[in-house]
Design a protein around this nucleic acid. Structure first.
Lengths: 354, 354
DNA sequence: ATTCAGCTTTCCCACGTTGTAAAAATGTGG
DNA sequence: CCACATTTTTACAACGTGGGAAAGCTGAAT
């Protein structure tokens, strides 16, 4: 029974922080022996172990992780920097990474960059140096040169669709293939005028370009139009961006019978606009999204979407990072590209309600 | 220009970690002087400062935060433990806390408890002791006794609707009042049979009970039925829980003309079921949620909801925690209850589409 | 030249932990 | 009872930093 078990007030009483030294003193052994007990070192007599353990419980000793980190040069923490947590895709992905990393006794420091280049550079450069052992970064605006200029010893794993020519592990699904699957599905169900929502200008390496390419390839192969009037550019990828883009598209006089959206949020926004304009989904316009966020499963018209395997992504990224950590300074292994799987999930927005 | 600016390969080269000592050696000054420069100590000659700074840049020195933490006894990190990040409400709240804390130079360690009691106890008990300076916890299952048994010196701030008789700061909106507002709105628009979705048995202190109470009070005051058949219990508060609860309610033969839901997710799930059953929102059934998550603004039928002031909550929680940190061990200030504001946001699910 | 005040720099140590190596205790066989 | 192997425990140092005080330096006043 802890002597201060009756304490009812935080900060009340002398509430001293207990260190190994305190335990050692009270147990009549050396500091190192206590350390050995704490760490489950083999060569400790049961008698000693028991005595020390009793004092540990008595004083409520807890290892000071900061000191341990300093001593060991490792913190057991990795950072996960995502564009925004408000986007359910990233929130769900974060959940997956945290869960998986914790099974490997790693703590995940979660942060968001807002998709801003300066923030992304900050993280990549090793903000929080020595507090984290490594970083998983999902960049949006980060440029190749930023990566090449990187000067930090912490391993970095890149996540997401953006592509780089830099010596870092990269985890991303095959966006072109995924987009092709979605586009092919729309062709298959007989749609003739398929618009693309969520293009972005200027960034050739962006995921949006790859998805756009997949869409364009399939449309071309099937003799469907791919003119600019069928491509709506957006600033971001929020529901609002989707709603506005859809409105612009309709205002411009185009009458698509299907839209393939950069992601689910854009798709949800688009469906919102369609509803407001009196167009029915999927009868008048079929809609396909990307990401398989939970929202899409509960829209009034459930959303057909491309579902990246989030668990596989989380695992691949974490494994890659931890392997880099394990391999130490010596070896310089070829950076690897991992392409986790994906699947098309067909729901009401393309196949009609039951 | 850093000597290893040309490095293109992480781990390649000897990439030594630079410490104060290295800088001191090269600059021909003592370690402490370098430390003084790094920390902007006043009494350093411009000449010395410049020379040291040059070497710092040259070697690419970065302070080792772990060591600094050990020395200072503070890490500048606070933890934010939420039930789940998959729930947009928590994700949005996390965003707000992270943003606000960073303006105060605090780093937020984000984690999720899954709403499980053991996890919540773990966090409250000071998991990560000494890595974080304090903790903001949003408990679901945590019991009062768990808090009283807490034995950790790190300040703790409780977040969310659950109430406790324990000496900790608590930030939560007035749930009864908020629920009353929502319920009154439904009465006002002429609804007569208003169901409540998302009750929970067994936990009298839960937020669900308070919202249920607000609903019941208003209904009683207005002569509306409040029988058990109008109350649907759920296990959790996900979209799926909402969908199932709504289905059960309808299957039981009750024909409400409005539902007040524990939160937006439940409401979205409920609307999904209503749609599937051919009932129109709001014509046949009006729906009100709680939380004002972004999803609700983009549902096919946009969702009327109670909007807690997330920014105010984030600020209050962070401020409370940092004040506890600042006040040190000595003073034992009365725990404070902060009640951030809320607002009813009226959308299509109660007032009809334009 | 001497003294003293004030600015600048250095020295020493502690934060709490663990790796290393050496010391002490225990056990084994002769 | 001794020599020697093995197990258990301890002493010491070091991780990188910053607080505190002492030491060194400068320049002005005596």
């Amino acid at each position: 029974m802890a002597p201060d078990a009756a304490i009812r007030w935080p900060g009340e009483g002398k509430r001293v922080v207990v260190s190994l030294k305190d335990v050692a003193l009270r147990a009549g052994v050396s500091v190192k022996t206590v350390s050995n007990v704490v760490n489950g070192y083999r060569h400790v007599t049961p008698a000693t172990r028991q005595r020390v353990q009793r004092v540990i419980d008595e004083l409520g000793y807890r290892p000071n992780l900061t000191a341990r980190h300093l001593r060991k040069g490792r913190t057991g923490m990795i950072a996960l920097a995502l564009p925004e947590l408000g986007n359910p895709y990233f929130a769900e992905l974060a959940d997956a990474v945290i869960a998986y990393a914790s099974t490997l006794d790693y703590i995940v420091l979660l942060d968001h960059t807002g998709g801003r280049r300066d923030q992304e550079i900050l993280f990549a450069q090793g903000f929080r140096a020595r507090v984290i052992d490594g970083l998983i970064l999902s960049p949006i605006e980060l440029e190749n040169e930023d990566l090449l200029a990187r000067d930090s010893d912490a391993p970095l794993v890149l996540l997401g669709e953006r592509q780089y020519d830099a010596p870092y592990d990269h985890i991303a699904i095959d966006n072109v293939a995924a987009a092709r699957t979605a586009a092919a599905h729309l062709v298959e169900i007989g749609r003739r005028r398929v618009a693309f929502l969520g293009a972005r200008h200027g960034y050739a390496r962006q995921a949006a370009h790859q998805r756009l390419r997949g869409w364009r390839e399939v449309m071309t192969e099937n003799g469907r139009p791919t003119g600019d009037e069928f491509v709506a550019v957006t600033d971001g990828y929020t529901r609002e961006d989707g709603a506005r883009a859809m409105a612009r598209l309709l205002d411009s006089g185009v009458r698509p019978d299907a839209v393939f959206c950069y992601n689910d949020l854009v798709a949800i926004g688009a469906m919102r606009t369609l509803t407001e304009r009196g167009l029915r989904v999927p009868e008048d316009v079929a809609v396909v999204g990307f990401d398989d966020i939970e929202d899409g499963r509960y829209c009034t018209t459930t959303l057909t979407t491309v579902a990246p395997h989030k668990g596989a992504i989380a695992r691949a990224a974490t494994d890659a990072l931890l392997e880099r950590l394990a391999e130490g300074e010596g070896k310089a292994v070829e950076p690897r590209r991992v392409r986790p799987g994906f699947a098309l999930v067909t729901r009401e927005s393309t196949v009609g309600k039951p």
